[in-house]
Design a protein around this nucleic acid. Structure first.
Lengths: 172, 172
DNA sequence: ACACCCGATGTCAGTCGCTGTCATCAGTAG
DNA sequence: CTACTGATGACAGCGACTGACATCGGGTGT
């Protein structure tokens, strides 16, 4: 992060990263599959928080409500990271390949959430659709939270955006 | 596509692609920004079809209904491509970087759709959420269509998945 | 007809991400 | 003390991508 913020992502080589960590470049690639992945080490923690939150939801909760509980749990952690999360987001936003990787990670979150919903007895199709829509709302909420440093805490924003989602997609 | 199907994406070099087209490798990179992009040349056509479909929807249609009209138009084109679309999807599914690029293109479709909805007078937030949810449904429908070559036409699958989406996200 | 220009292409050299291979060097078990 | 194992370093090499310069062909103006 120090190197990326100071010199920019593209102008930082993997050799630079390894040197800063006191390792050889080859060793870097033994810990991370590619240059991008250093920035996405924490996403696994988000996934597990959301999945556990879904599993812990009341058994009679609707799919999207269970998912909302999981997303709130993840949002609480991200909110705790505060400015660090914002700095990381700025770096990612600066580079196309990083944005693509971020989308891939979100896609992974969708898959994990859908699997957690299926575990609760939700049908495959409903689980996948809920997860896609819910995670999309989560992403919208996160962007909104990043843009307003003095705004409400992330979990609240997530709740608000999920409510908007329900309004917009309401059946006729 | 010939090279990718025959030897696989990773084992095909950009020099191979250029040679097959009768050009130098350098010239390839003057037409495409990177190796992946050859496979995503047609996505621009999809975007414009969807956007035009949204603009052409009745003025009093709800956001998600207007989007549905656009997505149906795009689906009709993809359905017409038939096996070619399926082969392309198989290549993309075989490689991580290609899957990431595909997600990025879908993200572009979301942005274009949201902009088209805003053009209709829909609020920014509602437009973005509708677009995210609708395109997610489109993707689910496409995957289902790819998996069932003898199944119903893609536009019908899109309609069916959108109906499922409305059910699942229904407000309490 | 001739000089001119410009956009597309070829060529070459170089950087950087990433990988296979082999040697080295702990620390640990026996 | 030795043998084994896991992590690391060192090195060579491939392939994606870029910058710089030369070339070529087709249209324009005179």
């Amino acid at each position: 992060m120090e190197l990326f913020v100071e010199h920019g992502y593209e102008r930082t080589t993997t050799a630079d990263i390894a040197a800063r960590a006191g390792l050889s470049e080859r060793t870097y690639f033994r810990h991370f599959p590619d240059k991008r992945e250093v920035l996405f080490d924490s996403t696994h923690a988000l996934d597990t928080l959301v999945v556990e939150g879904i599993a812990a939801a009341p058994a009679d909760a609707a799919p999207l409500d269970a998912l909302a509980a999981g997303l709130r749990a993840g949002a609480a952690m991200l909110h705790g990271l505060g400015d660090h999360a914002r700095a990381r987001t700025a770096v990612i936003a600066s580079q196309g390949e990083l944005r693509e990787r971020e989308l891939a990670k979100m896609s992974g979150l969708v898959a994990a959430s859908a699997a957690a919903l299926v575990e609760r007895g939700v049908g495959e199709a409903a689980a996948l659709l809920s997860a896609e829509a819910g995670v999309a709302a989560f992403r919208v909420a996160f962007d909104r939270w990043v843009a307003t440093p003095a705004g409400p805490p992330l979990p609240d924003v997530v709740d608000a955006v999920l409510a908007e989602l329900r309004q917009v997609v309401a059946p006729a």
